[in-house]
Design a protein around this nucleic acid. Structure first.
Lengths: 203, 203
DNA sequence: GCACACTTTAACTAGGTGGTTAAATTTATT
DNA sequence: AATAAATTTAACCACCTAGTTAAAGTGTGC
């Protein structure tokens, strides 16, 4: 009849951190308990099993990945405006959780059936709508001809991958962490410029 | 005095497959033994420990990742020619081992000190040389002004990320595996075209 | 035939894991 | 004070894992 609201949130916070850091098989329940500052028994008292806890964390991230994206693509802005908004949103999101894509991709890679969970009708619908808009703007001579799928993949690639690979690249090239941060910050504009050129008509 | 050459290669093949598939913590020695068609005891007879075996596989992939890259960047071709060659090489490599980058990034993510292993003097030297060449061609008016680091990151991002994320995207959009393969095949040209535009002078 | 390397079988160890349990203790509600 | 929920402690179970060991059987080259 009481329910301590803090504790289960402490557990969730800890679970997010450890699971994203070490993956499902790499995480021990004891790690989560330690991170949350409680003991293993209490952990099971709140969340019955490792699987259940992981499921919650995975679903959270899965949802967060798409919710804002749908909102942006669903607006009545132009293609280029949408592209810029997506860049802003993705970069914000990645700055907060740089290795989240790694977490998601890992889980999907090791449990391919999870793909179908991502298969939300909403996302599918919105994407096709966006593809149509791109083709229309091309037909109207507003942007350069480009395969919509390639545009989308390029957009996500240029945003996401650097956050995964940069630590490697940077150290290989002997840069400091501050340099890395600054570089990733600047990419926001670099990527926008990249797409302005890619979509502009003048050859 | 005999040494069965097949067996330790069978083990290595199996280890590569399972480790890349399931990661270090997700892999059981029994999995590798089964995949190799031998038993656990023989596995340890050839490779003393899991750690040792993993180390071998990791080093292999690490090396393969850079060797051809160094050769390409070290030639006397133009920037655009090198870019095209890198695309060809990367795409070939990714078609053979689509999830290799995931494997590497995971390991580096969970053992950050591994970054220093990648820190080969050769790669660093070659990269700086390539950056210099880019700046020179910009100064000579041969290509459009671009930050060399961004060029490199974009190149790797556009090549690599689609192989990691496409399975997700495709199913979300309801495409078949054949469609995916075809799409990834075509990207070879798409990416080249992308860079031709990005590097061309005409605004 | 003999020696040696390869391979299997099967049992074993030592330790870690997820998960349970029961009792005691603390904390908040009334 | 009394009740119930929250939390800790610590022991426990069943299971899985990496790794070892010893014995036996296989083949190969000499």
């Amino acid at each position: 009849m009481q329910e301590n609201l803090e504790t289960d949130q402490k557990i969730l916070r800890a679970a997010r951190k450890i699971f994203v850091q070490k993956g499902l098989t790499g995480t021990r329940m004891q790690d989560i308990a330690d991170e949350a500052g409680i003991n293993k028994a209490l952990l099971h008292y709140y969340y019955r099993s490792k699987k259940l806890l992981f499921e919650i964390v995975f679903k959270e991230h899965k949802q967060k990945m798409f919710e804002n994206l749908i909102q942006i693509l669903n607006s009545d802005k132009s293609v280029m405006e949408k592209v810029e908004q997506v860049i802003e949103h993705e970069q914000d999101s990645l700055q907060a959780f740089p290795t989240m894509p790694l977490f998601i991709m890992n889980e999907v890679h090791q449990n391919p059936e999870r793909v179908f969970e991502l298969h939300t009708g909403a996302m599918k619908e919105v994407t096709w709508q966006f593809f149509k808009q791109i083709e229309q703007e091309i037909a109207e001579g507003k942007i350069r001809a480009i395969n919509p799928m390639d545009l989308l993949i390029n957009l996500v690639s240029l945003n996401t991958f650097p956050y995964l690979a940069c630590p490697m690249f940077m150290h290989t090239l002997g840069m400091s962490e501050k340099d890395v941060e600054e570089f990733l910050q600047n990419r926001r504009h670099t990527i926008k410029e990249f797409f302005r050129q890619a979509l502009s008509l003048e050859k």
